[in-house]
Amino acid sequence: MMSKYQFLESYRFKNGMTVKNRIVMAPMTTMSSFHDGQVTNDEVAYYAARAGGPGMIITGVANVSESGKGFEGELSVTDDRFIPGLAKVAAAIKQDGTKAILQIFHAGRMSNSSILRGKQAVSASAIAAARAGAEVPRELTETEILTIIDEFGQATRRAIAAGFDGVELHGANTYLLQQFVSPHSNRRTDRWGGSFEKRLAFPLAVIAKVKGIIAEAAKEPFVLGYRFSPEEFETPGIRFSDTLAFVKKVKSELDYLHISLGHVWRTPMNDQSNQLPVVTSIKEAIGELPLIGVGSLETPEEVEKVLAQGVEFAALGRELIREPKWVQKVIRHDQSSIRYKISPSDFDELTIPRAMQHYLQTSFREVIHLSTDETTESNAYLKEVAPMEGYEKKL
């Protein structure tokens, strides 16, 4: 017997792809690929353990360019030789009708010469990120920009060949797509920078290239999503009004938008007078375009509240690390057995890769709810930025 929850209802995208429910597994870094970006068996097992329940699973990021690697243990989709490994991930995810989405990106200045094996990171302009230890990147040439646009397209072609059901452009968390939009990282005076409209030229070109590849190569409905951060904290930087203008500009070109937030009900942080949740304002701006809300969602009741506001999808991240069978347990009316804490002793049983285990016990220890620690407030990111958003915790 199915539960009464709205989030268990199916959804049909405008391109005809039907998703069996409104739960999305959020893209999360596993740091578990081989040094060259090849898929490991640990990653395949990790996704397989969480498949079958959510309507969609979005992978952790895969870099589209050799210059775009952002961290060690990152997936790569830079060459056809990666297709067989990525196909294993897609097949593992697509159990019992779950849709597999490959998130693709270029890290831009959010990389460094160590990760890039001695090469300088690149960005829209030669401006270092406002974070400790950030290196000054090299400004991309016109030819390099056009090459990266094409590489996003080729990455999409490989995702289609590997059997994924869509790609998500990672334009959030201060990565390259966002760097071109931002007046902090983009100080160019050519056709790729200057005015707000010119700063949108790069993401719009990437979207157009990816759409073209989908039209050429996809034989089945294949969705294109875009993840974005609602604001920046540098001055100058992206403000929420810029983001509202951006989403209105791109909404007709996409199948869905995905907000990057540490807490789904956070309000704009640069304008304390605006107490309307970001997710509510974005939904009003994009109308019928599907929106994925995310951030500190744990219980069925919390997820249902998001959909009650007109948001089509709710993404679970940390909660699906702790409880891989969250959706199945809700369907079976077995909510009382859902894990809201996780024991380090269960990491292996939950098929959490070893590199990711270390990450959870260091950078994310505060909010992963370890049973060995004192209970952490679930609303930790309601009033402050989360580390996964690409900024230092204290600004």
Rank of each mutant, 00 (worst) to 15 (best):
Gln309Glu: 15
Tyr175Arg: 06
Arg318Ile: 01
Pro353Lys: 03
Tyr11Lys: 05
Ser182Asn: 10
Phe313Thr: 12
Ala130Ser: 13
Gly212Asp: 14
His258Ile: 05
Phe313Val: 13
Asn21Met: 13
Leu244Ser: 09
Gln309Pro: 01
Lys14Trp: 00
Asp346Glu: 15
Glu349Lys: 15
Asn63Asp: 05
Gln6Cys: 10
Arg191Leu: 11
Gly60Met: 07
Glu234Phe: 01
Thr59His: 07
Ala91Glu: 14
Gln335Val: 14
Asp348Pro: 00
Pro230Asn: 07
Glu135Ile: 05
Leu140Ser: 08
Ile338Gly: 01
Val367Asp: 14
Met28Gly: 02
Lys119Pro: 00
His258Tyr: 15
Phe71Asn: 06
Asp80Gly: 02
Met110Arg: 13
Glu234Met: 09
Ala126Tyr: 02
Tyr340Glu: 03
Lys198Thr: 12
Arg318Ala: 04
Ala205Ser: 15
Glu9Val: 01
Gln38Cys: 09
Arg239Ile: 12
Ile286Phe: 10
Leu254Val: 11
Thr18Met: 11
Glu349Ile: 03
Val181Thr: 14
Ala205Ile: 10
Val294His: 04
Asp190Gln: 05
Ile368Asp: 05
Ser32Glu: 04
His35Val: 12
Gly212Ala: 13
Gln335Phe: 00
Val223Glu: 00
Ala48His: 12
Val136Arg: 14
Ser195Pro: 03
Pro300Thr: 00
Glu392Gly: 09
Val311Gly: 05
Ala205Phe: 07
Tyr5Leu: 14
Gly68Cys: 10
Val327Phe: 05
Ser281Phe: 03
Ser113His: 13
Leu316Thr: 06
Thr174Glu: 14
Ile93Asn: 10
Ala129Glu: 10
Val306His: 09
Pro344Asp: 09
Arg187Asp: 08
Asp348Cys: 01
Ile321Trp: 02
Glu135Lys: 06
Pro27Arg: 04
Ala124Val: 02
Phe152Val: 09
Glu9Ser: 15
Gly262Cys: 09
Pro277Leu: 08
Leu8Ala: 10
Lys383Trp: 11
Glu168Asn: 14
Ile58Phe: 13
Gly237Val: 10
Thr59Leu: 07
Asp346Thr: 13
Phe71Ala: 09
Ile149Leu: 11
Thr299His: 02
Pro203Asn: 12
Tyr381Glu: 07
Gly16Cys: 02
Glu349Pro: 00
Ser336Glu: 14
Pro387Phe: 06
Asp242Asn: 15
Val311Glu: 04
Thr78Lys: 13
Leu200Thr: 08
Leu307Asp: 11
Lys20Thr: 11
Gly293Arg: 10
